[in-house]
Write a protein that binds this DNA or RNA. Structure first.
Lengths: 111, 111
DNA sequence: AAAACTAATCGTATATTTGCGATATACAAA
DNA sequence: TTTGTATATCGCAAATATACGATTAGTTTT
């Protein structure tokens, strides 16, 4: 048997989908790029950059935090955000492997 | 001025978010992996693999197709699916650049 | 022409996402 | 202790996503 019906998805697929979903909005891509390029920055700076209201930015930040891609630390009265290095590396690797594996097995055929 | 308020997101961010969103579900990750590893396969084979109903698989396939990541061709009475090579490469590159750029600018600091 | 098969679409229910203004919270500054 | 500043959270509305069974559409086989 080459393949068999899955009772559920693999943990790796679930994890990768979780990261991908967190990245599935232009605002969150922009936030991640900003954080990666500026190393760290304050919430307020992000709000200034994006074409959405403060409450909405805060919501996007929460989603990225819940997915584990970023973290924040209090520097009263501000909050400093940055990439969460461990999960960032996990995500990077998951996606890198994903496309690497596909390049190995995929032929140049089209259907 | 280092940065300025965006009136809207960059096309690249929108495109990347579109791909990421399409990949933001375990079923769709599983489908993409399956297609990449099997080169091409029939819709029915995908349905057999996944723990969800045929109608739901069809819906996920439609989303992947709408995002441009896969394509299908009729081989009556079946439909053969495969990766859409052009957009696949565009997506791969977007993600690769994304993490490469971040590795360039990110220090090993944490906040 | 009828029956069988594959896959898309419809209709529906429920859950999640997105966005905002308003408000609350937490801390610093006065 | 009051005031101000920064950010999270609340409450809401609208849109989108997820899942399924049932049905339809398109082809092939009989």
């Amino acid at each position: 048997m080459a393949h068999s019906k899955l009772t559920d998805y693999k943990e790796e697929e679930i994890q990768m989908a979780r990261f991908a979903k967190a990245m599935g909005h232009p605002a969150r891509i922009a936030i991640l790029k900003l954080l990666a390029s500026m190393d760290t920055c304050f919430c307020g700076e992000i709000v200034e950059e994006l074409p959405i209201a403060q409450a909405t930015v805060s919501q996007h930040l929460k989603e990225l935090k819940d997915a584990g891609l970023i973290q924040g630390s209090i520097e009263a009265p501000k909050i400093r955000y940055c990439i969460e290095p461990k999960n960032w590396e996990i995500a990077r690797k998951l996606f890198a492997d994903f496309w690497y594996q596909s390049s190995l097995s995929m032929q140049n055929t089209t259907c």
